[in-house]
Design a protein around this nucleic acid. Structure first.
Length: 215
DNA sequence: GTTAGGATGATCT
DNA sequence: GATCATCCTAACA
């Protein structure tokens, strides 16, 4: 059973904060994707923050362009981009308007509509890999560039492509941080990746994981 | 269990 | 022409 969405004004306020506050606060909360075929609910377990115009790992680092324009707009909107020739990734714009910050949704647990998600991702082998990775997550939720700029917290919930539900945030003691995946150079220096420790849906790609000196 | 390489196209230099 | 906020498959241990 999907709980009622939190009121839209509160949702906007939620995203209108520094991205480093929003990112860990998203963990454990649920995102609902409404499609003609039904609803899919996703409990977020792994995210990455892209923090403002001076973050070398961010698409906004080299200024505004047609592609990243949504990041420079108001918070609470979806930034969807196409990459590697075949995949989409879903971000949520954070911070005040003009501050190009966002959170990349990297992984989550499908808690409702798994059958529908499986139709979008027929190569999925196990329930926990349906949204295990940013492109898998977008594919499972049937998200593509048509949703770039979509309002995550619209005035009328019936118009929502997404609804961020109140849900239960993950316990702070269960949250881990580390360098972002696939981000090199100076951008790798910041621990802007957040995940729920031990959750099986967290993507295993941790090439730049926090230290692993032990074997 | 791990790892290497290919797929495939928009975006930016 | 190079670079991607990636995934999948095949091959190997």
């Amino acid at each position: 059973m999907i709980p009622a969405p939190e009121s839209t004004p509160l949702a906007r306020v939620f995203f209108n904060r520094p991205v480093l506050e929003v990112a860990p606060d998203l963990l454990g909360r649920t995102l609902v994707r409404s499609t003609p075929g039904g609803q899919i609910a996703l409990r977020l377990t792994e995210v990455e923050a892209y923090a403002g115009p001076d973050d070398p790992g961010s698409h906004a680092y080299r200024g505004r362009s047609d592609r990243n324009a949504v990041m420079f707009g108001p918070p609470g909107y979806a930034y969807v981009y196409f990459t590697y020739g075949m995949w989409h990734c879903l971000n949520l714009v954070c911070g005040p308007e003009g501050d190009p910050s966002g959170v990349l949704l990297r992984a989550g647990e499908i808690t409702e509509g798994a059958d529908l998600a499986r139709k979008h991702r027929p190569t999925s082998r196990r329930p926990h890999d349906l949204a295990q990775g940013p492109a898998r997550l977008a594919t499972a939720l049937d998200v593509d560039r048509a949703l770039n700029g979509a309002d995550v917290c619209p005035a009328d919930p019936a118009d929502a492509f997404f609804q961020v539900l109140a849900g239960t945030p993950a316990d702070a003691s269960a949250i881990r941080t580390g360098p972002r995946t696939g981000v090199g150079g100076e951008g790798a220096a910041h621990p802007y990746r957040f995940w729920i420790d031990g959750d099986p849906t967290v993507s295993p790609y941790r090439a730049h994981a926090p230290r692993r000196r032990d074997k």
